[in-house]
């Protein structure tokens, strides 16, 4: 019995040490509500102050100074200067303004899982390049029901159609299109002016299959006159990169992060319990890290003699 108490004390001590370490690393104050909560529950990497983004969980604190396009530098193999140059010239703003606009939480899309579609835009987030309202859509009207003398345009597609890359909301593709359609209307005779409404259903990492499902879901609600489908690259991109992982290769449709969601939804009870234990007990976490070694993929030459 006393050994059990010792174990608990050890666990508590480890938790305190780990919390101190994390807070020093992230320049945070130690005694916060969240810290004490974590101390007791043990889920040190709990995600209250984490933001769910396209790139996974990012600590909100880190987002304060995180430049949105930073990741592009590594996969495009360009310097920060070149990166900022591209963004600022494409948006006609200064590099300093670029850094400011595309930092912090409002430049990272938050996503939530939507069946048949994938990781869709979370509702009600005002990003620097898009204003996402209810149902994850971008629109400027007040009534979902189409009004008299209104014509609607739906935009579907991937991140390019979403508006990613624009430095302000007014000049992103949704609002630009609405503005252009509504101005310079030729009023012939006594015909009334048509009001154009542009609704953007696009989201990052969308493919044509998710576009199809979105249209199917919302076309009767929104009653559009035009569907503008700006897409093509994502289907190729996700198919191409899925080939590297044989497990995903066969699927007709896989979206960004799908394997994580599938593992969670269909994971066995044992796996879920195991993950829960390892997440919440530091002792087990250390145990797992040092003693369970992952199978290393040997890409070296091997001649199987056995």
């Amino acid at each position: 019995m006393q050994y059990f108490v010792y174990l608990l004390l050890l666990e508590l001590l480890l938790r305190i040490l780990y919390l101190i370490y994390l807070n020093i690393k992230n320049n945070r104050h130690f005694l916060t509500y969240f810290s004490i909560k974590k101390l007791l529950t043990g889920n040190i990497s709990a995600n209250e102050d984490f933001v769910d983004t396209k790139f996974g969980l990012i600590d909100e604190n880190k987002l304060k100074n995180k430049f949105r396009f930073k990741r592009a530098e590594s996969y495009l193999n360009i310097s920060q200067k070149e990166n900022l140059e591209a963004i600022s010239t494409a948006n006609s703003i200064s590099q300093k303004t670029s850094e400011e606009i595309f930092s912090r939480k409002n430049s990272f899309e938050q996503l939530s899982y939507k069946p048949f579609v994938g990781l869709y835009s979370k509702s009600n987030q005002k990003l620097s390049y898009a204003n996402v309202k209810s149902f994850g859509m971008q629109y400027n009207f007040e009534n979902f029901e189409k009004q008299y003398n209104t014509k609607r345009v739906i935009i579907i597609g991937g991140s390019a159609a979403f508006g990613y890359g624009s430095s302000n909301i007014e000049n992103n593709i949704t609002n630009s299109l609405e503005k252009i359609l509504n101005e310079n209307q030729e009023t012939e005779d006594s015909k009334e002016e048509i009001k154009w409404e542009v609704i953007n259903l696009a989201f990052v990492a969308s493919q044509t299959l998710s576009d199809l499902n979105l249209i199917n879901m919302y076309i009767s609600l929104l009653k559009p006159n035009y569907i503008i489908h700006l897409a093509g690259y994502n289907d190729f991109f996700y198919f191409f990169h899925s080939n590297n992982n044989m497990n995903i290769n066969k699927k007709l449709f896989q979206f960004n992060g799908s394997q994580n969601i599938i593992n969670f939804l269909y994971g066995s009870h044992n796996t879920k319990i195991k993950n829960f234990l390892f997440d919440n007990f530091i002792i087990l976490k250390i145990f797992k890290k040092f003693l369970f070694k992952k199978e290393i993929d040997h890409k070296d030459q091997i001649y199987t003699v056995f």
């Binding site: 040997h298 070296d300 030459q301 091997i302 001649y303 003699v305």
Partner: peptide
């Protein structure tokens, strides 16, 4: 190296 290791 094939008699004890991974590589020939």
């Amino acid at each position: 190296g094939f008699h004890y290791g991974r590589t020939t």
